[in-house]
Design a protein around this nucleic acid. Structure first.
Lengths: 181, 181
DNA sequence: GTTCATAACGTCCATTTTGGACGGTTCAGA
DNA sequence: TCTGAACCGTCCAAAATGGACGTTATGAAC
């Protein structure tokens, strides 16, 4: 065991979520990701099956597999895993955010702002609404979510507010102009 | 020729840049990406060699290869390529932006806001400064950059301003608190 | 209590994406 | 001419991606 493997963000996401959950199946993780991190950092579901496997093989996780029916695999962070997570958390990073926005990409290459706004505005508005809902919920439960999650959510809210404002501006401006050359 | 291939954002980036440049080598593209899109949408350099190859094989690009020394390959968009680009631009998208921010990820899992801020703030500040410099430049040249690029840059500036403000807040707040549980 | 539709859950696989190592080319100056 | 630094291009192993395709559980209708 303990092959050397490279740990990337997806690894720490799995490690971190499992540490919070105590023990969980990939499917549990998938649910949790959808509720929380999913908006910040997309993971295709398949990775939530392969990554824990990888981590387990390298000694960061323990597996407990069900006998019957679905043969679910329940994962749990090992000491080694906890330590790796701690080390990662303790280490600052100057790596910069990368925002992959298909709509901005189209904008960049000259697509019609108005056309994009029509599709983007509702999408961002509903996302913002969802975030604010979550914020409200987090504030109600006095113990509630850990500080870090709250802060991350703040980032999301700020970002979405700006996005809404931006696309609103794009939508208002004169009709389609798109392929102006 | 004209194998069916799937066109993704990287494809359109190559197509779009080549359309602007007229004709270019992967290295040229790499330079251009570094100056413009690179901050929004990272492409590893290798992809700027493989992707044009792929596109050429499918009939979206023409190749002209140098005889001597470096055997540079110069690419150029074909009619088919132009059409594909136009179609992509004409089609709205409700796909949402995804922001992959390692620092926010650490924050989420409980890393010390202050520690992160110390590394993130300078990084975002210098990026913001660079953006604003570019904005100024774009405004000076009256013909200057196409509208779309200007708008995309605006998005970047807005985003960076918020990031700077956010990390400033994180830095000011009480000293390290990190692994509070 | 069967039967069926639907939802829950898991795996596989072909493609892309990544990043980094490596190797050849060109150019400037000693 | 030699030599080191900057340029430029390719290769490869590893990981990410997404979507197709199974299987199992659930519960509503009969």
């Amino acid at each position: 065991m303990s092959n050397e493997i490279r740990l990337g963000p997806p690894s720490y996401i799995v490690l971190g979520l499992l540490e919070i959950a105590g023990e969980a199946t990939p499917y549990d993780l998938k649910q949790f990701v959808a509720l929380t991190l999913g908006d910040f950092w997309t993971l295709p579901h398949a990775q939530l099956y392969t990554e824990p496997e990888r981590l387990a093989k390298a000694g960061y996780l323990d597996i407990r597999q069900e006998e019957g029916g679905r043969h679910r695999k329940h994962y749990k962070v090992t000491e080694r895993g906890k330590q790796a997570m701690q080390e990662w958390l303790a280490e600052p990073t100057d790596e910069m955010a990368e925002m992959r926005d298909p709509a901005v990409l189209k904008l960049f290459f000259g697509a019609s702002p108005k056309m994009l706004a029509d599709a983007q505005l509702p999408a961002h508005e509903s996302r913002l609404a969802r975030y604010e809902e979550m914020q409200k919920l987090a504030m109600l439960t006095s113990d509630g979510a850990p500080e870090g999650m709250r802060l991350a959510l703040d980032v999301g809210v700020t970002f979405e507010r700006e996005a809404v404002a931006f696309w609103k501006r794009m939508g208002e401006q004169g009709a389609d102009d798109g392929a102006s050359d």
